[in-house]
């Protein structure tokens, strides 16, 4: 007499254990990437902490000395202490900026495509892990690690840059540091992960997937650069206020409104007028009605960041969804033809 073994009771309680096992296996499989990532985080954190503390102090005192001695050094900072500080800050900024591309390249090549190519993915799928679960773990574990690392690196980076004002004045909207501040690095990194996974699934071969993932992220990055400033409504002021924009505003455009009411953009007429009276005189002389200026004030930083983050994460979400759909279509998760 045969007895049916009912294992329904055990399957639900096995899930958390299976989940943890799956996560651990992902970590084990990509151990070298994990170590590289840890090394990167540790080295960058150390470099930035040094730049924030001792590096800055040493460079600062040294430069003040030199500045007292010769005026030129005030404008062309130099000296071994400054060079060391400069190097630390530049390299760590470069690393934080490039990091999403590294993630995309790794995700494209090693995370998904390589496993599909060599067949070790199939090995996992026949070890009681459904393909959907496998992909979810493959995305979730790196995403968590990336978030953890970025949560350490980006605030440190911000600290360093805020302090940098005297040494190298850069504005909040500067092209080289804006994408590596706030929530953007995390967004681009997650987008890189998603695009890499999708490229790996679509292409299926490690090296071409690497190229496709890199190109895709580059395209997203480029578009982000182009349309960054149009993601949040700008502020337009007229009249005297247009003369004296706030100090750290990102000036976008200036123009005039003629007496007939035509609005002309990209025009600097009367922009250098002296006070309200001077402005009125200038306007009367030139036959203009008003001057205007469009800009993003500093308090737009977070709305702009979050808007761009939202767009980039939406792209990432699309890529992840596409990846899961593609995987489901390819593998028999339900045993019936789709």
């Amino acid at each position: 007499m045969t007895t049916l073994l009912t294992s329904t009771g055990t399957s639900s309680s096995a899930s958390p254990a299976v989940g943890r096992g799956l996560a651990l296996s992902v970590l084990r499989l990509h151990r070298s990437a994990l170590w590289l990532w840890l090394l990167l985080v540790v080295v960058l954190s150390a470099a930035m902490l040094w730049a924030y503390g001792p590096g800055y102090d040493a460079a600062d005192t040294d430069l003040q000395e030199r500045c007292r001695k010769s005026v030129e050094t005030c404008h062309f900072p130099d000296g071994p202490a400054f060079i060391r500080y400069d190097r630390a800050v530049s390299y760590s900024t470069l690393a934080v900026t490039c990091f999403p591309f590294l993630v995309a390249v790794w995700a494209g090549a090693a995370l998904i495509a390589r496993e599909l190519e060599t067949g070790t993915a199939h090995l996992a799928w026949t070890q009681s892990v459904s393909p959907t679960r496998w992909l979810a773990a493959k995305l979730a574990v790196p995403a968590l690690l990336i978030t953890a690392g970025t949560a350490v690196l980006v605030p440190l980076h911000r600290l360093v840059w805020d302090q940098d004002a005297w040494l190298r004045s850069m504005d909040w909207y500067d092209r080289s540091i804006y994408p590596s501040s706030g929530t953007l690095p995390l967004a681009y990194a997650l987008c890189g992960l998603a695009l890499g996974a999708l490229a790996g699934l679509v292409v299926g071969r490690a090296l071409p997937a690497l190229g496709v993932a890199f190109a895709a992220l580059l395209a997203v990055y480029y578009l982000g650069n182009e349309y960054r400033l149009s993601l949040w409504p700008t502020v337009t002021v007229t009249g005297a206020k247009a003369l004296n924009l706030p100090d750290d505003a990102l000036q976008l455009d200036r123009g005039v409104i003629t007496d007939e009411g035509t609005r002309i953009a990209n025009n600097l007429a009367c922009a250098d007028a002296d006070g309200v009276a001077g402005l009125r005189r200038c306007l009367a002389d030139s036959g203009l009605d008003e001057i205007w200026a469009t800009y993003h004030p500093r308090y737009h930083y977070w709305p702009l960041q979050l808007a761009e983050t939202g767009v980039v994460l939406a792209v990432a979400a699309l890529a992840v969804t596409a990846a899961f759909v593609l995987l489901r279509r390819r593998t028999a998760t339900e045993g019936v033809a789709v």
Binding site: D253, R254, I264, N266, N267, L268, A269
Partner: peptide, 10 residues
């Protein structure tokens, strides 16, 4: 003609 330096730069 329109006198914009920005235009030229663009």
């Amino acid at each position: 003609r329109t006198g914009g330096g920005l235009c030229r730069l663009q």
